[in-house]
Amino acid sequence: MESQRVDMFIMANSKYFESHQIPAIRQRLLNIDESKWIMVQSLGYKDPTTSLIVSILAGGLGIDRFIIGDTGLGIGKLLTCGGFGIWSIIDWFMIQSATREKNMILLNTAL
């Protein structure tokens, strides 16, 4: 791909990924085929900020985990009052990087 378009993509979407992954993503996008570009751009990335807000407001019900696609863990949180309240507090700090990891997995499936 042209470097200009890749850089545009990185600028618009860098908040969805871990910062240490950005150089690798850029390199991989530079190497991909034109036909995959539309796929990469149309993926629905989850916003880490949204999941943090959901985690603070409804983390005890496990809704943050449901939103990022960890259905099993969400049920675990739901059945245990947010993991005795401890897990929900831990997730206030973990959920953003968990969301970014999910986005990376999503991007990997498209590439």
């Binding site: 983390g59 005890g60 019900l61 009052c81 947010g82 309240g85 929900s88």
Partner: peptide
């Protein structure tokens, strides 16, 4: 120990 019960006063 329930976070919701302790903050909102209603059971989860």
């Amino acid at each position: 120990v329930c976070l919701i019960k302790n903050t909102l006063g209603i059971p989860c």
